[in-house]
Nucleic acid binder design. Structure first.
Length: 299
DNA sequence: AAGGGTGCCAACCGCGTTTAG
DNA sequence: GCTAAACGCGGTTGGCACCCT
C-alpha cells in the first residue's frame, strides 16, 4: 500500500463556491491563450485561487464555447431516455451523443425530470449504477413506452415549449446589452470599468456570435462538428483542448451515408424516420463502444 | 407580505482509471 | 512493475429562486 492519495490541492488556500465573472474571464482568457494541458497547474499560472479540478469543471460545464444553454428539446430528452435505457448512468457517454450538452447537465435533467417521469413511484430508486439495483428490463421498457406515449399525446395537445423548466432567473444568461461583441477585449473594457454585471454573458454572446448556437430544432437538421470528431472508431470528446480558431468554417453535415456508414455526429430532422434511424445507429455505436459494459449490465 | 417547502442546478467530493517517472 | 500524480466520472449537496399557503 502506498501513502494514500494526496489531496488534489490545498483546500485552505483555494477559493470555493460560485465563480465570479472576473474569475470566468481570467479562466477563459488563459485557456484561449494557452489551452488547458495541465489542469493542476492552470490555476496557478492563470492567477486563479482555485483548484485545478474546479477550473476544469467550470470550463467543461459552463465556459466552453460549444456548451449549449437553455431548455432541452423533446428530441434531446428522447435521446437521453433512449441512451439511458441502454447505457445506464454513463452520463459522459450519453453526453457524447448530445453535442453541446454536458454530462452534468444531462445528469441533472435526468434526476430532476426524466427519472421522475419514468419511475414516479420509485422513491428509493436513486441510482442505477449498480445493475442489481436497476428495475427489471421489462419494467424499464414499460416506463419508457409510457413516457413516449405521454409525449406524443402532449405534442398533439399543444405547441408548448419543452417541459424542462430551466428558466430560473439566476441561471438564465439573458442577452447582454452589448449588441455586437467580437473580441474578448471588449469584455475587458467592462472589467476596466468595474462593470462585472454579466461579463460571462457577454462572453457567451461573443461565442454565440462566433459559434452560432442553432435553434434546438435545427440542431437535428444540421449539426456543426465543433469540438467533436470521430477518430477511427473511438470518440474524442469536446473536453480536448479547445481551439478558438475563429476562422474555422462551420461544417454543415446532414445525416448522410458515406461509405456505408452514417456520420456519427450528424443528426437528422426531428419527427422523421431518419431520427429513428439515427437513434438506432447511435445505439449501435454505444453498444460497440461499451461492449464490455453490456456484457455485464444487459445480459 | 412573510415564511416554509420544493425544485433546480452549479459546484464539490471521492473514487476509479490513466499516465508519467 | 511500482508508485504517485493527474485526470475524468458519477454521486451528492449547498444555496438560490420560485411556489404555495
Amino acid at each position: 500500500m502506498g501513502k494514500g492519495r494526496a489531496p488534489c490541492c490545498d483546500k485552505s488556500k483555494v477559493k470555493r463556491g460560485p465563480w465570479s465573472p472576473k474569475e470566468d474571464l481570467t479562466l477563459i482568457t488563459f485557456i484561449q491563450k494557452h489551452g488547458h494541458h495541465n489542469w493542476r497547474s492552470l490555476p496557478k499560472l492563470a492567477g486563479l485561487m482555485r483548484c485545478g479540478k474546479s477550473c476544469r469543471l467550470r470550463w467543461i460545464n459552463y465556459l466552453r464555447p460549444d456548451v449549449k444553454r437553455g431548455n432541452f428539446s423533446k428530441e434531446e430528452e428522447d435521446a437521453i431516455i433512449h441512451f439511458h435505457q441502454t447505457l445506464g448512468n454513463k452520463w459522459s457517454k450519453i453526453a457524447s451523443f448530445l453535442p453541446g450538452r454536458t454530462d452534468n447537465e444531462i445528469k441533472n435533467v435526468w434526476n430532476t425530470h426524466l427519472k421522475k417521469r419514468l419511475f414516479p413511484n420509485s422513491s428509493s430508486y436513486s441510482s442505477i449504477s449498480c445493475p442489481n439495483d436497476r428495475p427489471t428490463e421489462a419494467d424499464q421498457k414499460k416506463n419508457y413506452a409510457i413516457v413516449q406515449e405521454e409525449r406524443n399525446s402532449r405534442d398533439n395537445e399543444s405547441q408548448d415549449p419543452p417541459s424542462s423548466s430551466h428558466l430560473h432567473g439566476k441561471h438564465m444568461h439573458t442577452k447582454p446589452e452589448l449588441h455586437e461583441v467580437n473580441e474578448l477585449h471588449e469584455i475587458q473594457l467592462l472589467l476596466d470599468h468595474d462593470d462585472f454585471d454579466d461579463i460571462t454573458s457577454a462572453f457567451l454572446q461573443t461565442t454565440e456570435t462566433l459559434f452560432p448556437v442553432q435553434p434546438l430544432d435545427s440542431l437535428l437538421q444540421t449539426h456543426t462538428l465543433t469540438g467533436f470528431h470521430n477518430t477511427g472508431g473511438t470518440t474524442q470528446e469536446a473536453t480536448e483542448p479547445q481551439s478558438f480558431d475563429h476562422s474555422q468554417p462551420e461544417i454543415p453535415c446532414g445525416f448522410e451515408e458515406t461509405n456505408g456508414e452514417f456520420d456519427l455526429w450528424s443528426q437528422p430532422s426531428p419527427n422523421s424516420e431518419e431520427f429513428d434511424e439515427w437513434l438506432s445507429f447511435m445505439d449501435n455505436q454505444a453498444y460497440f463502444d461499451d461492449f464490455t459494459l453490456f456484457g455485464e449490465v444487459c445480459l
